[in-house]
Design a protein around this nucleic acid. Structure first.
Lengths: 193, 193
DNA sequence: AACGTAACACTAACGGTTAGCTTTCAGCAA
DNA sequence: TTGCTGAAAGCTAACCGTTAGTGTTACGTT
């Protein structure tokens, strides 16, 4: 897929900015590094930086953007006879394992340490919940009200965030998903609208 | 409780700032009004404004700060024989009714229209969920793991937010709380730590 | 070879927020 | 009364994220 030199250069610039930013953030702390510092160190203009990334926080969350896709695919691509919740549970477990790996620890500590980053992550989660709710509502095998779909989507992303921050993520995930399963079973079976 | 003149003046300044801000925000839109506009219209210095309110968003959410208290009291002050979830449900229902009242419509429309305000509200909800989780975990009648407490607290604030934004808040609340009730019933009965 | 345009740069600004320092004045005591 | 203290408010000036406006390269195309 290597197209023209133009796109290669663009991708290189983007990667250089992201790498530089992450390095500086980890070295000195997210809040102690300004956009102007990142731009200078990456040898680009501030406006260039913002043409590649929508915000300072986006510099940190650049690879975590497939979260939304993975959850959606876990629903749409599951085996024809597999119920919803186990499929979600498998995918959430994989996501939790991925971000509780030792290699992700420094980044997670950084995110935890900055209010701006935590808020950004939260609002990403809400967006993901909404998109997941749409996918669930669109599945013909799952006849539930839109409220039930929205609710279970919210619970699912909650499960991710709660398990990730628990002392024992695996055990927490199991416990939480038992609750999610119960909630889904207790939802209105008939769509309301 | 009118103490010295000093505190009265301080309270008056605070109220004047909040009233002016809300009026301007509703008149011209939240994003179209700057902090300097609010300060000038309230006839105070910008620094004075920020000594009363931690941020621009806090100007909007100044009275909604009792949310946290009310949820906590719904748990601690419930009748000795009342189970947890119905008590939470009653309080959440009251909160939803309160903020879907016609008088609250302009403010809600404003919040809905600004990304900054929506994010601020979300992160408030997370704080509320954490505090609610502590209260639930501290209740000796409810022997559950801390994970279960945190989970049900998160679900409860989700219920509030989902019901509030639903087309029919009352019906949605009933449906969601059936799911919350099921989740609570499905939680580990024995505390894990 | 010439052109259109995407990527990037530069400057300057806007808006939220804070630091540093000064002024005012309520509350209190000599 | 007088004078002191400290909280409240003010002013200036800046910092930081972000954006608009305006060029300038240099890639890809014709």
């Amino acid at each position: 897929m290597p197209t023209g030199r133009r796109e290669r250069k663009k991708a290189a610039t983007r990667r250089k900015i992201a790498d530089t930013a992450l390095r500086l953030f980890l070295e000195r702390g997210y809040d102690a590094v300004g956009i102007r510092d990142v731009a200078a160190e990456a040898d680009v203009a501030v406006t260039t930086l913002f043409s590649h990334f929508a915000s300072k926080e986006a510099l940190v969350f650049e690879q975590d953007e497939d979260f939304e896709h993975r959850l959606a695919r876990a629903v749409t691509d599951r085996a024809p006879d597999e119920p919803l919740i186990p499929a979600l549970r498998r995918e959430v477990a994989a996501l939790v394992r991925h971000c509780t790996a030792d290699s992700a620890a420094p980044v997670r500590r950084m995110v935890h340490g900055s209010a701006a980053l935590r808020e950004h992550e939260e609002s990403m989660r809400l967006r993901h919940a909404e998109s997941l709710a749409s996918v669930i509502a669109a599945d013909p095998r799952l006849a539930r009200s839109t409220t039930a779909c929205r609710t279970i989507a919210r619970f699912t992303v909650d499960a991710y965030s709660l398990a990730r921050d628990a002392a024992d993520p695996e055990a927490a995930l199991e416990e939480i998903f038992r609750m999610v399963e119960a909630a889904w079973a207790g939802a209105d079976p008939a769509p309301r609208e």
